[in-house]
């Protein structure tokens, strides 16, 4: 029994090492003064300095963040409205087909979504750039928010709404004082998911960015193609750390809001 457990642990460790090794390899060489990714000549922060002095890169980072925050915020609003609408549907068939349509958008390949957006924007005559990227990010984030918020809505006992109405709340008050507070954890989860999806999206963005506008993933890709510069390693390290911070932050938010859930005696 114990040997089996040990084996399982070893397996887990090996898998994680394999998964994380390339990232750590990349991070390790971001401190290499040698300028290449094979011989480690000596420790330097030169590449980080380069990253911080690169104003073009700085603007791109800002772009990426603005796109991520804006698209996450807007798609959260749209997604919550969508989830509420789906939840309110009486007919099960309509509900299920809408959900399926929603899920198809999540699982369909980014390349197809990106290409179709490119076609759409070109037909509509929308100039490729900030707006096109923002719109497409909102579009692929909304289904994610819906899928994060909907379970919370389903968890909510319908008598809560009845109770609020019974106590004199009008429709808006029911929504703002009962429904929204109840699904807040789901809304936060949806927002953070949308944020991370937007931050690391490459395929869709690659199709819909025009000249003069770029996000981090696209920029790193084009730089990596031009030849090896360890500043990319430095940049990747910074992004990795930022992501870790997001994940930790999300964990704490979830832990805090998660406490007030799982309550309510369900009679039969």
């Amino acid at each position: 029994m114990r040997a089996k457990r040990k084996l399982a642990n070893v397996y887990l460790i090996v898998i994680f090492v394999i998964l994380y090794a390339p990232i750590f390899y990349l991070m390790y060489y971001s401190f290499n003064s040698g300028g290449s990714m094979h011989d480690f000549k000596g420790f330097t922060l030169e590449w980080y300095k380069e990253v911080f002095h690169d104003t073009r890169l700085f603007i791109i980072v800002l772009n990426t963040l603005v796109i991520a925050l804006l698209s996450a915020a807007i798609s959260t609003i749209l997604g919550v409205i969508g989830a509420l609408a789906i939840q309110m549907l009486r007919k099960r068939q309509v509900k299920n087909s809408l959900l399926t349509l929603n899920n198809v958008l999540i699982v369909s390949p980014d390349v197809i979504i990106g290409a179709s957006f490119l076609i759409l924007f070109t037909i509509m005559g929308i100039k490729l750039g900030f707006i096109s990227v923002l719109l497409s990010h909102i579009a692929f984030s909304v289904p994610i928010v819906v899928i994060m918020v909907l379970p919370k809505l389903q968890e909510m006992s319908p008598t809560l709404v009845d109770a609020a109405r019974d106590l004199g709340a009008n429709r808006w008050q029911v929504l703002s004082k009962v429904v929204l507070p109840f699904i807040t954890p789901g809304i936060f989860a949806g927002f953070f998911m949308a944020l991370t999806y937007s931050l690391d999206d490459f395929a869709v963005t690659f199709f819909v960015t025009g000249n003069g506008f770029s996000t981090l993933s696209v920029e790193i890709y084009s730089r990596a193609r031009q030849g090896i510069s360890l500043s990319i390693n430095a940049l990747s390290t910074l992004i990795f750390l930022f992501t870790i911070m997001l994940v930790v932050g999300y964990y704490f938010v979830n832990k805090k809001t998660g406490k007030s859930n799982g309550m309510g005696v369900r009679g039969r």
Binding site: S157, T159, L160, D162, A163, A164, R165, D166, L167, G168, A169, N170, V178, P181, F182, T184, S260, N261, M263, G264, V265, R266, G267, R268
Partner: peptide
């Protein structure tokens, strides 16, 4: 919400937040 009646629900329907 405009009626002069109030209900005590089977599952109590207290607001958890």
């Amino acid at each position: 919400n405009k009626r002069q009646v109030n209900t005590v629900f089977q599952d109590y329907a207290l607001f958890p937040h």
